[in-house]
Design a protein around this nucleic acid. Structure first.
Length: 617
RNA sequence: GCGGUGGUAGCUCAGGUGGAUAGAGCAACGGUUUUCUAAACCGUCGGUCCCGGGUUCGAGUCCCGGCCACCGCGCCA
């Protein structure tokens, strides 16, 4: 950050800029009161069945206005009234104050359009002037998050293995969801549900005890553990005495044999250290790493309670749950697909630890909501899990949190098939992030060779990692996504570099002006937006709450990404059409204010998606 | 077989509880810089919203039937 020279500023003007916010509360979402106002107007106007009138206020296409009420059409048609006439009556009954904020018009067959007046835009810009104000405004946005506890379960790699490209989406989407929930006022607990227990440890211990190489372990522990697992796996074919030996190692581990437990602990520790290196690059820090092993001693209670409640039953020696009121999970289904709580050999599995995990999160964390971020192939499993949890918790009087499976599609190569290295191997996440930074560095160096190398490296880190994160977050998580270096690192289109570039350009203006973007005094002389691109930009800025609400309600970060892309586009148009640092102090302050708020919203929004931003690129 | 997800411009994708003339980006073509980062901006071209019915003032969106792709479906996680 360059040292900013602060010019002398006339103090008298400070109060003027915030005259709107001082006088009245400016709602964070400008549409907040419209629904209520329209429903009262329906009563005042004596509309037939006014109590049943639903205004259906929503964000409008900017060509029509900022918000529109669609409800008049349906209400009028159902009662054989003329929609336009009804709209006229409604508008006439609106309180006078509404026109201080909005221009109101009837359009088309009976839509009521509300367009924010320039003064109302200015009031919002005055009221939401820093990150704290945005955060305060956002608390309670969306449905029922404020003050509630949400456990978010994401990433969840298997220990003793490297993270690969398949682990990317859960980590990136999960972190964005955490930040969005927090921003809207929730208390978020980040829980990394590690795959740290299971039959693979028998084979790994078998391999470790025979072939472990201390030097390789010191250099790259995970790499070595993967090698030892492969050796162990190859040495223990089905039916061999070696496999029996590996199984004995597993039993010893499960029975608490000190040597094997110590080994297993070591595997977990080195794995976690390696994972954290990835998480650091992605800006992720978990509150807990409660993996499958943690629930080892908690599954007995699950068996007991489910059996007592008559929910689980014996089937071919296994303990299973059917949901007969559900066509697919009923015992009467053509191909019955029970939820396997305990296997016939008595071992616990995925289902039982997940059930124990749900109970722990409810009892220990007091979770009001649980979000589990895994790929779409596990949808059936989680549907069964949630069905089972609901019946179980109801029967036993456990407190039931809201349960969400946040699923996502596969990452594919440009050929539409699973992403692989050129030789057909799995792409390691570390290698992928390295390549992102290398590619970003090459681009920065080409575009801006004048920047010192240390700074170029930092820029490459932010742009490269951000590109990978944003490529994922900019798209609806439900669909598969095509991994393309060229697209994600392009400066054109809905990409991280495009957004980060807009941020960098705004910083550049403030550097040139010798003013800090947070310098309220410097922006005090600003009056309301005038030029078309100024107004368009301001109108987009006040839609930030709408974007956050959409993203958090749907647990779909791409709504926020899309908004930020459009905001950056409106900013670029403004930036291209109007010069900011003009001589006229009023115009200059007006445009600097727009720059400052665009910067604030872009930086806040990108931060919510888990991206870091920069001041120069 | 049952189920999930998807099918929207040449390509990659948005489209809220049904709402106005279905939108972006890329690609293609043309234009904009003595001016705060041209890594930008502006414009043009581009549509059987997979197909067929239905519901209604109004359907890309809801319902029914079908087609295609990927995926899941008892002891892996």
């Amino acid at each position: 950050m360059p040292v900013l020279r602060k010019p002398p500023t006339p103090r008298l003007r400070v109060a003027r800029a915030f005259r709107f916010s001082r006088r009245m509360h400016v709602p964070f979402d400008p549409a907040a009161g419209l629904d209520e106002v329209l429903r009262s107007a329906a009563v005042t106007a004596g509309l037939p069945d006014a109590d049943g009138f639903r205004p259906e206020v929503r964000t409008a296409d900017p060509r029509h206005g900022d918000f529109q009420a669609n409800g008049v059409l349906g209400h009028a048609k159902a009662r054989k009234l003329n929609p336009r006439a009804v709209a006229e009556q409604l508008i006439a009954a609106l309180p006078a104050g509404i026109r201080d904020s909005f221009d109101v018009a009837i359009a088309g067959p009976g839509f009521i359009n509300f367009t924010l007046r320039s003064s109302a835009l200015q009031a919002w810009l005055g009221a939401y002037s820093d990150a704290a104000a945005l955060r305060a405004g956002a608390a309670g946005l969306g449905r029922e998050h404020a003050g509630r506890t949400w456990v978010v379960d994401y990433s969840g790699p298997n220990t003793a293995k490297q993270m690969h490209v398949g682990h990317l989406r859960s980590a990136v989407i999960g972190e964005a969801i955490c930040r969005l929930l927090q921003f809207t006022g929730a208390r978020v607990i980040r829980d990394n549900h590690l795959g740290d227990w299971g039959t693979q440890f028998g084979k790994l211990i078998y391999g470790y005890k025979r072939w472990a190489d201390p030097k390789a372990l010191a250099e790259d522990a995970i790499e070595e553990l993967e090698r030892l697992y492969r050796l162990g796996n190859d040495a223990t074919p089905e039916g061999s005495p070696e496999l029996d030996e590996a199984r004995r190692e597993l039993v010893k581990l499960q029975q608490g044999d000190p040597e094997n437990v110590a080994l297993w602990r070591k595997f977990s520790e080195v794995s976690l250290a390696a994972f954290q290196q990835i998480y650091d690059r992605l800006g992720i820090r978990f509150d807990h790493h409660l993996g499958e092993s943690f629930y080892n001693d908690k599954v007995e209670r699950v068996y007991r309670e489910l059996s007592e409640a008559g929910i689980a039953e014996d089937s071919a020696g296994a303990l299973v749950v059917f949901h007969d009121d559900h066509p697919r999970f009923s015992r009467h289904a053509e191909r019955p697909n029970p939820f396997m709580v305990r296997k016939a050999d008595g071992a616990s599995g995925y289902a039982s630890t997940d059930l124990a995990t749900a109970l722990y999160r409810s009892e220990h964390f007091g979770a009001d909501g649980i979000v589990i971020v895994t790929d779409f192939r596990q949808s059936d499993h989680f549907e069964q899990l949630f069905l089972t949890v609901r019946r179980w918790f109801a029967a036993k009087g456990h407190r039931l949190p809201a349960l969400h499976h946040v699923s996502f599609g596969a990452v594919t190569g440009e050929d539409g098939k699973a992403l692989k290295t050129r030789s057909g191997g799995t792409i390691k996440l570390k290698a992928l992030l390295d390549e992102a930074e290398e590619r970003a560095l090459a681009i920065v160096t080409e575009k801006n060779p004048g920047i010192p190398e240390a700074e170029r490296l930092e820029i490459a880190r932010i742009v490269g990692i951000g590109a990978v994160q944003y490529a994922d977050l900019s798209q609806n998580r439900s669909s598969n996504y095509v991994f393309s270096w060229d697209k994600m690192l392009s400066l054109e289109g809905n990409t991280a570099p495009y957004l980060l570039y807009a941020v960098a350009r705004i910083h550049s203006i403030f550097r040139k002006a010798g003013v800090s973007p947070g310098d309220a005094a410097a922006l005090a002389a600003a009056d309301a937006p005038v030029e078309p691109t100024e107004i368009a930009l301001a109108r987009k800025l006040v839609k930030f709450p709408d974007a956050v609400r959409q993203a958090v309600d749907g647990l779909r970060p791409h709504y926020l990404g899309l908004y930020l892309f459009e905001l950056a586009g409106d900013y670029s148009s403004f930036n291209n059409a109007e010069k900011v640092l003009v001589d006229d102090p009023a115009v200059r302050a007006r445009r600097l204010l727009l720059c400052a708020r665009t910067l604030l919203v872009l930086e806040t929004g990108l931060g919510l998606l888990g991206l870091r931003t920069l001041t120069r690129m």
